[in-house]
Design a protein around this nucleic acid. Structure first.
Ligand SMILES: [Zn+2]
Length: 302
DNA sequence: ATAATTTGACCCCT
DNA sequence: AGGGGTCAAATTAT
C-alpha cells in the first residue's frame, strides 16, 4: 500500500515547485520588459522585443492564473476545510465518436468548465452601474420571470493579474432606474501593475471593498438621470496601502483566495459603520454557484 | 490596431 | 428539459 494517494501531497509539492518556477519566469519576464522599454523611443509603438516579452509575460500570467485557480484547498491549517470537492478532473471525455458533430466550425467547449467555487457575494442597489472599477462584460442572459436581462462582468485584469472579481447587474423591476448589483469575489488586482495585491488571509476583504482603487477621477459628474439622493463618494478610503510582499505571496493568496473559509457569520462585525453608506444595500452572503472553467490542458501534468 | 461589447452556442446542475 | 452562467467568434467602439 504505502502512499497510493494520487494527488494528496505529492502533487502539492510538485505543484508548488511548478508555481515557483512560473513565478520566477514571470519575474524575469517583467524585468526584461523593463529593460526593453526604451524611454527614448516613447513613440507608442512597441518594438518586436517588447511585443515578444509581453507575450511571454501573458503566457506566464495565464498559466499561473489557471494553475492557481485549480488549486483546491490544501491549507493544512484551517479547521473547516471546505469539504473536499475534487470531482473535477474526471476523465469524462466522451470523445465525439458520433457520426454527427465534428463540425469544424462548432465551438468546442468540452471540458472547459470548472466546478463551482463559492466566493463572497453581496448585493447592492445603485442608481448607476458604474462603480469606478474596470469591468468587462462577458455575457447577458434573460432571466425567468424578469423583464430585464442580467449582465455578467468580470474584472478587466482577470488574465493579467489573475483577479477573480466579478459582478452581475440587473435592473430592478419595480424601479427600472435602479440596478441590483451583485458582487462576487473581491479584487486581487492593482493598478500599479506590480505585485498583485494580495489579501492576507481572509477577512481583509472588507478593507478592500472600500478602496475604489484606480480611476483618479475625483468627481466624475453624476449623471442627471440619477436619483436625487445619490450622494456619496465622500469617503477617501484611507487605503492601508499595499504591503510589499514577495511574489510568493501570490501563490499563497490564490490558494487561500479560493478556499475562503467564511464562517457562518461573515466577520463584517467590524466597525466600518459609514464605510459603505453610499447606497442602500443588503449584504447577503449569497452562495453563488459558480462554474469554474477548466482547461483540459490543466489535466495534463507534464 | 487594439480593446470592449454583442450574441448564440455551449456547459453544468436541478 | 430548461435555467442560469460562461465562451468565443463576430461586431462595434476607441
Ligand atoms: Zn480586479
Amino acid at each position: 500500500m504505502g502512499t497510493l494517494s494520487p494527488w494528496p501531497e505529492t502533487l502539492s509539492n510538485s505543484k508548488k515547485r511548478v508555481i515557483q518556477q512560473l513565478v520566477h519566469g514571470q519575474e524575469c519576464a517583467t524585468q526584461l520588459q523593463i529593460l526593453f522599454h526604451n524611454p527614448s523611443e516613447e513613440g507608442g509603438r512597441l518594438s518586436a522585443e517588447e511585443v515578444l516579452v509581453q507575450n511571454i509575460l501573458t503566457s506566464f500570467n495565464h498559466t499561473l492564473s489557471a494553475l492557481t485557480c485549480i488549486d483546491s484547498s490544501e491549507v493544512s491549517q484551517n479547521q473547516t476545510t471546505c469539504n473536499d470537492d475534487s470531482p473535477w478532473c474526471e476523465d469524462r471525455r466522451s470523445e465525439g465518436c458520433s457520426e454527427s458533430s465534428k463540425r469544424p466550425g462548432t465551438k468546442d467547449k468540452r471540458g472547459c468548465y470548472k466546478r463551482k467555487r463559492d466566493a463572497e457575494a453581496w448585493t447592492v442597489v445603485s442608481a448607476t452601474m458604474e462603480d469606478g472599477q474596470a469591468w468587462r462584460k462577458y455575457g447577458q442572459k434573460k432571466i425567468l420571470n424578469s423583464i430585464h436581462p442580467r449582465s455578467y462582468f468580470r474584472c478587466t485584469r482577470k488574465y493579467e493579474q489573475g483577479c477573480r472579481a466579478m459582478k452581475q447587474v440587473q435592473r430592478m423591476e419595480d424601479d427600472p432606474q435602479m440596478y441590483e448589483i451583485t458582487y462576487i469575489g473581491t479584487h486581487t488586482c492593482t493598478d500599479s501593475f506590480r505585485a498583485p495585491q494580495i489579501i492576507p488571509d481572509s477577512e481583509s476583504w472588507e478593507s478592500q471593498m472600500g478602496s475604489h482603487s484606480q480611476i483618479p477621477t475625483k468627481h466624475h459628474h453624476l449623471n442627471p438621470a440619477a436619483f436625487p439622493s445619490v450622494k456619496q463618494e465622500a469617503k477617501e478610503a484611507a487605503a492601508s496601502d499595499v504591503t510589499d510582499m514577495d511574489c510568493m505571496v501570490w501563490k499563497e493568496i490564490m490558494g487561500g483566495g479560493g478556499g475562503f473559509e467564511y464562517s457562518s457569520e461573515h466577520g463584517m462585525g467590524c466597525d466600518y459603520g459609514d464605510c459603505r453608506a453610499f447606497q442602500y444595500e443588503f449584504l447577503k452572503p449569497a452562495e453563488i454557484e459558480h462554474d469554474y472553467h477548466f482547461d483540459e490542458s490543466e489535466c495534463l501534468i507534464v
